[in-house]
Nucleic acid binder design. Structure first.
Lengths: 115, 115
DNA sequence: GCAATACTTAAGTCAATGCTTAAGTATTCT
DNA sequence: AGAATACTTAAGCATTGACTTAAGTATTGC
């Protein structure tokens, strides 16, 4: 199995902030301008632009400017890589349970033979 | 649609740190004591205990102590809720694309024939 | 009992983050 | 052209977060 790709690191830091998650949820409902993104967030436009920069840097969001309006939208493929990190950890663990039996994890275990 | 449950907020902040993700990956391979968790991380045991507290607070990890050893393991159900947040955002967005047509998000709409 | 082990807790430090305000720049409207 | 709009960029600042060291507390081994 390969290690998860480097950008995943930035993706997780990006969604670690609740304001940025709100932005992602807003964009999940469709593209939006920077002002539209900012409107429900109760902070300066400047702050929103800074959050946007982080979301774009990790690839979760893309934007393009037409005239004076920058329109932003989600990049679903990057969402998928984050989603898959959780899935792979969970599946590894669940496989683990199958292999060893849950009781082994209960602490009572002494020296389980390796391999 | 319901809003995602409150704990999700803490889960994302928890995995926003790469050390804690390393810990989760270690635990994905099976339960471990605090010392075993700390060993590959190159930092003090104290720091690891603090990370562990955060992972436990959000429910991603559970531990129990037997004698002087605390054994930690993953809580797969919580992983699943985080996984599903990404999935739901991505799916919402993909449904959006289906509904509106990707060209609407392109802004530039260079008159390409629809469909 | 005494020492080693395996954490645990409490400060304290220092850099990274999440904002703010202020001063731009580029577009569009009238 | 001048004013309004929609960002953009640069400081600055207060807080949070990720460590550290140091001093505990329980357990276990000799």
């Amino acid at each position: 199995m390969l290690k998860y790709s480097p950008p995943v690191d930035d993706v997780f830091r990006a969604v670690g902030d609740s304001t940025r998650r709100d932005m992602v949820e807003r964009l999940g409902r469709g593209p939006a301008s920077v002002s539209q993104l900012a409107e429900p967030l109760g902070m300066s436009l400047s702050a929103v632009v800074q959050h946007l920069a982080i979301l774009e840097a990790c690839g979760l969001v893309r934007s393009h400017k037409v005239g004076r309006v920058r329109t932003c939208r989600l990049e679903p493929m990057i969402m998928r890589t984050a989603e898959e990190w959780f899935a792979s950890q969970r599946v590894a663990w669940e496989r683990n349970l199958d292999r060893l039996g849950e009781y082994l994890a209960e602490g009572e275990t002494k020296q389980r033979s390796k391999r």
